[in-house]
Design a protein around this nucleic acid. Structure first.
Lengths: 212, 212
DNA sequence: TCATTTTATGAAGGATTCTTCAGGTTTGGA
DNA sequence: TCCAAACCTGAAGAATCCTTCATAAAATGA
């Protein structure tokens, strides 16, 4: 289980029939939309339910409180991104360093861009209760995956330190966030992605050359 | 002036006597502390006033509403950072590229670290109404300063494009944010700062070498 | 068909919040 | 000393919000 601190975030009831599955998905989607159109300040359980086309009572049958709703949406999104990045890291093992970086960064950007609206919406609640802990946990996952991948690189002198990997990932996330928040065209996305790859490649080349 | 959209954010009254100056500063400081200890959700005008040792009515004599209070604190902090970075960029003109980057990045990190508590607290309200626009405006300032500085570098083949500068600054901000949110020791700050400098140097070297 | 389980409803209680304003206190200068 | 301006107070109105619960509809399967 997820421990006692998260007890109040756990779903209240699991959907069994088909219609309730539809309902919870509608609620999730409505949460994103309300978050984007109204902001976190005006995100209300009633408003979310209204947008989802159900009543408030229905919402409270699946989520014990408002925060658990936000937490669930955040968790789902971050897990999805982490899985894609981990998969990319596994695929890129034993390849040359530059290609490793490229595949990892591109997987990250693509995962975030796949549902750019969700990514942007969630930036607004990422600092709420439970958010930081969750982000930290997911961050460790991607860092471990990246670290394991880099250790299989055939063309590096010395493996990069943990600090270097942290810096690289944090830098990449910052660049992605900046990109997401300007609602870029597909052309801008492509160019920015190239540059992010180059950024990480340059840095990794620098730290793996002499004593990293 | 700042335009009509920001009209409701402008201060209601300017302090004249000494005691009111003390009061508004106490309110600013209390805002940070409440933000850090209680989070944005529980940040209340009453709570801020209480923490500042004044009554709510006093708060509303200087700020027309709650948002203007948050906006003012955010604006003050971002302006301070931007000024420090601009000054560093001016100082570093005509120096070698690597040193330019070093001075700029270090100024940025130092400015954020000077009041790390404020920086962290403000991440929590940066997405509220008015925040994104303000951040965008300040971001342009630092980008222009950086761009102007880089154009005076004596040792580059071709100047970096705007996208490259944007990416570099966004990456640096991401790294700084990640650092700030882990409450680092002074040793960790020093190491991370070194790595950020190296990150930006490597990237700038790469994009200015051949056609950037 | 019918009993049981699952799902949906939405009015209302209880709590919190933003903001105002009428009335007080303090300050600075004439 | 005395007055006007500056400053402070905090109770209370109006609005909003979270959450519950009694009730009802729909689905399942025997």
């Amino acid at each position: 289980m997820t421990g006692h601190a998260l007890a109040t975030f756990e779903p209240r009831k699991t959907p069994i029939q088909a219609r309730s599955t539809v309902t919870v998905e509608a609620i999730s989607e409505a949460t994103i939309q309300v978050l984007l159109s109204q902001g976190p300040e005006r995100l209300t359980t009633t408003r979310v339910a209204e947008r989802a086309g159900v009543s408030v009572g229905t919402l409270y049958q699946y989520y014990p409180n408002k925060q658990s709703l936000l937490f669930a949406v955040l968790e789902h999104h971050l897990n999805n991104v982490a899985e894609k990045v981990e998969a990319a890291c596994r695929r890129a093992c034993h390849k040359p360093l530059a290609q490793m970086i490229q595949e990892m960064v591109e997987a990250f950007v693509d995962a975030k861009m796949e549902r750019a609206d969700i990514s942007v919406a969630l930036y607004r609640i990422a600092t709420d209760v439970g958010g930081p802990a969750l982000i930290k946990r997911i961050g460790q996952r991607t860092r471990r995956a990246t670290e394991a991948m880099l250790q299989t690189a055939p063309d590096i002198q010395s493996p990069p330190g943990k600090i270097a990997i942290d810096i690289m990932l944090a830098a990449m996330m910052g660049a992605i966030r900046s990109l997401l928040e300007k609602e870029p065209s597909s052309g801008e996305v492509r160019k920015s992605k190239e540059q992010m790859v180059l950024l990480c490649q340059s840095y990794m080349a620098a730290v793996t050359a002499n004593g990293g």
